[in-house]
């Protein structure tokens, strides 16, 4: 192994992914609160941004996060049918399919973005979702430079 390659390995081991997590106020943000209250331990890489509803999330927010160097983006909301605003999460779900395709076309692995449903009582599901995304992103490595 060359010296440069060795340095690269060290750097990759030290690298911790940065995750932007958009959570709706009523279900997933509350689910994350419950994860804390229940002392459920999960990896500390995600930074939560609270929005009223996943329906508020403009796909541009997600693309901007990836462009600025987020290694992964999580969107977590109420289960379909349980949206506090009746249907905002369904609008998000509709955008999601297109968004994933756009990300893929831009040369970014769509496994870097995750859409999940976690209710206010599903602390473990929330925490597991965060952990799953982080694990996925760790396998993919840092995002920088992967845009087409």
């Amino acid at each position: 192994m060359t010296e440069a390659a060795e340095k690269q390995v060290v750097r990759d081991e030290e690298w911790e992914p940065k995750i932007v997590a958009f959570c709706c106020n009523w279900c997933s943000y509350a689910g994350a609160d419950l994860a804390g209250t229940s002392r459920i331990q999960y990896p500390p890489n995600a930074r939560i941004i609270r929005v009223n509803c996943t329906g508020r999330i403009d796909p541009d927010f997600i693309l901007t996060a990836l462009e600025l160097g987020a290694d992964g983006v999580l969107v977590s909301g109420c289960h379909p049918g349980d949206c506090h605003y009746t249907s905002g999460n369904l609008k998000m779900r509709a955008r999601w399919a297109l968004l994933r395709r756009a990300i893929e076309q831009a040369g970014v692995d769509p496994r870097r973005v995750r859409l999940q449903w976690a209710s206010a009582s599903e602390a473990q599901i929330f925490a597991d979702g965060v952990a799953t995304l982080i694990e996925q992103v760790k396998k993919l490595g840092p995002l920088r430079g992967q845009w087409k």
Binding site: G36, T37, R39, P44
Partner: peptide, 16 residues
């Protein structure tokens, strides 16, 4: 939210 979203769910990783 430093309690529910940080200290209580990363209790064993003070640095992170």
């Amino acid at each position: 939210n430093l309690r529910e979203h940080v200290s209580w769910c990363h209790m064993h990783q003070p640095e992170a």
